[in-house]
Amino acid sequence: MPFGWEPRARDFPRRNRLIAGISLGVVVVEAATRSGSLITARLAGEFGRLVFAVPGSPLDPRCEGTNGLLKDGAMIVTTPHDVVEALRPLTEPDLFRPRPATAPIERSKPLSTPPDDAERDHIVEALGPTPVEIDDIVRHTGLSISAVHSVLLELDMAGRLHRHPGGLVSISMLD
């Protein structure tokens, strides 16, 4: 948010989602039953991140959330070393070391041939002012997905294609 932005409760879930998404893991130290930290932990789990929790007294209401996370499978944390050891496989330098270059694979024919004029016309005819899924165009025309995407890219670059939410496309009827 811009500087001077007044924090609002409705902005926190978006912040929690960003934190969960950019993290390798999330550590929850203390959380009541209804806590934003639990939202972050849930999102982290959905994103495939590690979720850690520090156990607390079962009599302390501020620990109900963390103890619940532990019951649901979060990794127990009692020292920072626990987190470092759990994250070590994810941060090994070997994972990020560039691999040696290999010789390019020689191909006798190209992976795909560019669509010809008849195929282009067939794809354009399959488009209309009503948004459709690209998969429907592939099924309707019987052409390869690479040919359909190639023509859609050409139409898009020419300003003749409209892209709609959900991956739908339609053609501009200005002609």
Rank of each mutant, 00 (worst) to 15 (best):
M1I: 10
P2Y: 11
F3L: 10
G4P: 08
G4Q: 12
G4T: 08
R8M: 14
R10H: 03
D11I: 09
P13I: 07
R14M: 08
R15G: 04
N16Q: 08
I19L: 09
G21I: 00
G21R: 09
V28G: 04
R34N: 07
G36L: 07
T40A: 15
A44G: 13
G45K: 11
A53H: 14
A53F: 09
A53P: 13
A53N: 08
P55H: 10
P58I: 06
D60N: 08
E64M: 03
N67D: 07
G68F: 00
L69S: 11
G73N: 03
T79Q: 08
P80I: 01
P80K: 01
D82Y: 12
D82Q: 13
E85G: 09
E85N: 15
R88N: 07
P89Y: 09
T91L: 03
P93Q: 02
L95Y: 07
L95E: 04
F96Y: 06
R97I: 05
R99A: 14
P100R: 14
T102H: 11
P104D: 12
I105D: 15
K109E: 13
K109Y: 14
L111Q: 07
L111R: 13
L111F: 14
P115L: 13
D117N: 12
G128V: 01
V132D: 01
I137M: 10
I137R: 07
H140M: 01
G142K: 05
S144C: 01
S144E: 06
H149P: 01
V151G: 11
L152F: 14
A158W: 00
A158P: 01
L161D: 10
H162M: 05
R163Y: 06
G167W: 00
V169S: 09
I171R: 15
D175C: 03
